[in-house]
């Protein structure tokens, strides 16, 4: 289980996260939502150990998070890959040293589910569309069947239909393999449809942790209500009642 206990973190002298306590069990999905600059991506960096917390502790089953080799789907799809290498080489990075052979069946299944032709993996990042690069990022994150996957805006470059297919694939694999998923997203419709819990961040603090139902129907704070109403105005959520 991923556990954050009263975590604070700074970017330079600015407090980017303050007193964050969260937990995430295997097989579950936690969506982290909030406006730009709320600290969502900083939260991911802190969990991965890229940014050291100034206070508090972050653990996976009581040990350091790095012991579980978590995966990350990065926000900027193209810059997530080495521009000089074919995508396949980057995709195989998480399993370097772990396996002698390329897991062809796994790649095949993920490519099919992500609607990516396998030959595309022989191209370089600049030779594929941003939406394709984003799905290759998801492929790389899931190839080694990690126990914890951090998704930073994983569907932002995909069209509405592909978004739903990709979300479905992630949910199916999660059911089969039981990984814990933390998903940072602007898309509240996605959060409500796929998360077990939604954490709303505002100015580096947790405003509310709610189930999708209570977030969609009866958000507690004014800010969460504003977010919910914005999602309805944008067509990402249906108005209830």
């Amino acid at each position: 289980m991923l556990r954050l206990d009263q975590v604070s973190a700074k970017r330079g002298n600015v407090v980017a996260l303050e007193d964050i306590s969260l937990s995430l069990s295997p097989g579950n999905t936690l969506a982290v939502v909030g406006e730009s600059g709320a600290g969502k991506s900083t939260l991911i960096a802190t969990i991965l150990g890229l940014l050291r917390p100034s206070k508090g502790t972050i653990t996976w089953n009581g040990a350091e998070v790095s012991t579980c080799r978590p995966s990350l789907v990065m926000q900027e799809p193209r810059s997530a890959f080495n521009p000089a290498h074919p995508l396949l080489r980057s995709v195989l990075e998480p399993i370097v040293g772990q396996r002698a052979t390329v897991p062809t069946e796994r790649i095949e299944r993920l490519c099919t589910g992500l609607e990516l032709p396998q030959q595309l993996l022989n191209r370089r990042p600049s030779e594929v569309s941003i939406g394709q690069a984003q799905r290759v990022g998801i492929l790389r994150a899931l190839i080694a069947t990690p126990p914890l996957v951090l998704f930073d805006e994983p569907l932002s470059a995909l069209d509405a239909v592909t978004q739903k297919h990709t979300a479905r694939l992630i949910a199916d694999l999660q059911r089969e393999e039981g990984f814990a998923a933390l998903i940072v997203t602007h898309d509240l419709g996605y959060a409500v449809a796929h998360a077990d819990e939604i954490a709303v961040l505002k100015s580096g603090r947790i405003e509310e942790v709610a189930t999708p139902e209570s977030f969609a129907v009866a958000p507690k704070s004014d800010y969460c209500k504003t977010l919910r109403d914005a999602a309805i105005a944008l067509g990402a959520l249906e108005a209830v009642g």
């Binding site: 509405a160 419709g189 109403d229 914005a230 999602a231 944008l234 067509g235």
Partner: peptide, 30 residues
Amino acid sequence: PVVAAATMDLLDRHLQDRDTAMMLITHDLG
């Protein structure tokens, strides 16, 4: 989402009393 909704609302208000036509290109039918 908050800024996006405010932006679309501003656009609606702006166009309300004008003859300006609008074409919104999006993959998001919602």
